Simulated assay, not measured.
Amino acid sequence: MIQTITKENFAAEVENAGRPVLVELWAPWCVYCRRLTPVLERLSDKLGDGLPIGKINIDDEPELGQKLDASTIPTLYLYQNGQHGEKLVAPSSQAQLEEWINGQMA
């Protein structure tokens, strides 16, 4: 399931989720972000509730964009236990994204 993350629900849906959450920082004008959307949808279908995916529109949520260092988009973070590891910027393929997720969860 892909959901919209805002500053109002960030703590509940990401930091206090009680399970890993994949977060993408994006913007509607970002061509690469739009190309990544079907990859995230396929990943969501594949992983189901095992790994929720949240999208933060940095135009609508500039404070979260700044807090999470979204100087280049798309930027992805995997949150576990309220913390995120290394960011992934503009993955080149679904395989690269899945490999990065698996490495973060190991």
Rank of each mutant, 00 (worst) to 15 (best):
M1Q: 04
M1V: 10
I2L: 15
I2Q: 05
I2Y: 04
Q3D: 02
Q3K: 15
I5K: 02
K7N: 11
E8V: 04
E8R: 15
N9P: 08
F10I: 13
A11Q: 07
A11Y: 06
A12I: 05
V14K: 01
V14H: 01
E15M: 15
N16K: 15
A17T: 07
R19I: 00
R19L: 01
P20V: 01
P20K: 00
V23D: 01
E24M: 08
E24G: 10
P28E: 09
V31Q: 14
V31I: 14
Y32I: 02
R34Y: 02
R34W: 01
R35G: 02
R35E: 14
L36Y: 06
T37C: 08
P38I: 09
P38V: 11
V39P: 03
R42L: 07
R42Q: 14
L47W: 01
D49N: 08
G50D: 08
L51H: 00
I53N: 04
I56W: 11
I56D: 11
N57L: 04
I58E: 12
I58Q: 10
I58C: 08
D59Y: 03
D59F: 04
D60W: 02
E61F: 01
E61T: 06
P62Q: 14
L64C: 09
G65L: 11
G65E: 12
Q66G: 10
K67S: 10
D69Y: 09
D69P: 01
A70F: 06
S71C: 11
S71L: 15
P74K: 00
T75Y: 11
T75K: 12
T75P: 04
Y77L: 09
Y77N: 04
N81C: 03
G82C: 13
H84D: 02
G85C: 08
E86A: 15
E86R: 15
K87D: 09
K87R: 14
L88H: 00
V89L: 07
V89S: 06
A90K: 08
A90W: 03
P91D: 11
P91E: 13
A95W: 00
E98V: 12
E98K: 11
W100V: 03
I101Q: 05
N102A: 15
N102I: 06
N102G: 13
G103S: 12
Q104F: 01
A106T: 12
